[in-house]
Design a protein around this nucleic acid. Sequence first.
DNA 1: CTGAAAGCGCTAACAA
DNA 2: TTGTTAGCGCTTTCAG
Lengths: 339, 339
Amino acid sequence: MRGTNRPSLKDVAAIVGVSTASISRCINNPQKVAEPTRLRIKKAIESLGYVPHFGGRALAINRTNTIGAIIPSMENAVFASGLQAFQEALSHAKVTLLVGSSNYNATQEYDQIRSLLSQGADGLLLIGKDRPKNTQDFLERNSVPHVLAWCFAEHMSSLTVGFDNRKSGQKITKHVIEHGHRKLAVIAGLREGNDRAHERILGIEDAVKANPTVEIVAIEECKYSFNEAGAALDRILAIEKSPTAIICSSDVLAVGAMLRTKDLGLRVPDDLSITGFDDINLARVVTPGLTTVRVPQQEMGRKAAVILLDLINPNRSNAELQSIELTTPIITRGTLAYL
Amino acid sequence: MRGTNRPSLKDVAAIVGVSTASISRCINNPQKVAEPTRLRIKKAIESLGYVPHFGGRALAINRTNTIGAIIPSMENAVFASGLQAFQEALSHAKVTLLVGSSNYNATQEYDQIRSLLSQGADGLLLIGKDRPKNTQDFLERNSVPHVLAWCFAEHMSSLTVGFDNRKSGQKITKHVIEHGHRKLAVIAGLREGNDRAHERILGIEDAVKANPTVEIVAIEECKYSFNEAGAALDRILAIEKSPTAIICSSDVLAVGAMLRTKDLGLRVPDDLSITGFDDINLARVVTPGLTTVRVPQQEMGRKAAVILLDLINPNRSNAELQSIELTTPIITRGTLAYL
DNA sequence: CTGAAAGCGCTAACAA
DNA sequence: TTGTTAGCGCTTTCAG
């Protein structure tokens, strides 16, 4: 809210005929103001449409009640729904959410971190745990309260709320192998600067290495779009040893691949099995339903909010906060065949 | 960025041995400071890791370079992707995005408006054009710079960037009628406090009225979830005169209905035609593909950003800004049969 | 229970 | 070119 004609505490005080201190108290500690006065004040506030000035308050209490979140992109439903849950939780605590997006790019993320912080964010929600040294240093030097979601690590200077991407990648792969698949291919997001994609692949490799009869015939990286995933599928099908199953590091990728199989006249899962990762609505809606890994999107958002709120609470108990590890169940639908 | 030991202008000034004014100038108008002083100041700023205090600045210049957006929910991809585009456009202009969600509820929206404004938002992006009088008044009385997206109205005190929901509803209905359908049913979002849902229904009714042989056998309202839409479908199928086509006011609803038809063993579109509204990824991915209305999500986000940035620009030209009407093409896929 | 007043960090006139 | 100073709007002791 801007402008010149915007009412201030003084205006309210003048109308009610009390001091500005009383108005302030009435807003922040209503119980410290006598009932009748309080009522008159409330009425005046309402009639003027008074809203406290952010800068003034921030200056006085040295706190903005604002938390920033920087996510790769809201375009992917998995982040959008995590963010929604995060926002709701913050909102209950009267904290406002600042949003930035990194577009899966470390430099952009760094810029956004600085930007949100300079906008007064009291704390930050970040996705993933690997970032360049300068970003890391920046967070530490300024002792920025923050939590990392979509990942889990116990011994780290940052708190995390999420799951172990590597273990999850391994788990779904084992699951695929147990279905009799021996030749696997992978479609993954670009690993560069994306620890989630990277670790999921690592997990896939773990599972494969544990089983000498299984091999990965191709790993294709691409951006998170249907078309890119379709192109990745084409590249995979072009090689000699054709895989019987394709493990995708995200539902968007898996669905993109499925769409392409349809164009190609391939049947899933009869001709080719495909698995996803995330369990967004898309997974439930494609035909056949996508067998995938459920990522606890909302839970991460909510829990991250709780931790962050605690972190920035000026009179918080000194109880050590803990990173939280959540589970990622496999959701069985119809894209994974028994061989 | 917070903290008690955080350096202030004064600290920098003390180190360099100049006044705080010079530091401030050096930051905001470097050319107004002599070269050597400037260098010394910059060095001091760097070494201290000084970052201007947001509240102080906001108080002094009465501007935050922050814009708020309040959307019904990021859970629906249609808003998430509009918001993503909006955020990107703002970010290019070094403006930060504050996000609130209304959960399709006017009271919550009002709260969020106040909250974002009190957090210092210089302007606001809102969805839809109908809101309770008190919200309306509030916006006007405080002359909050704002634009309304997802709707269009030429003669209104607010600027809008979007499309005519009524006309769009009419258009898709005409399209359905042209396919030979005579008994239609509607599944729509809850009309209460949701002008988009409301107007789309109005448009549907317009099209039906224009054609005496056509009738609406049922209008079912429900929340935006697959299950609710499924239940709505059940209610529709329970009535005597069964419709041959169901027009849904959103893709989520349409897909929810399709999912239910599958459970019921009904074939779309042979047994029942279904149309959607939004054209989100889901629409492309279901089988058969959903015939729907494309809503220019990203374009609205981008254009709204441009207008809003102009609106809050302190030295903006007095050129009148115009509301923008975008088109909503019908995307033909496979859920609408010729009768 | 209420008021007076200091001061949070910054900017922008105005002076020098 | 630089410094002085008066606020911006709010909260919070400290008195009354």
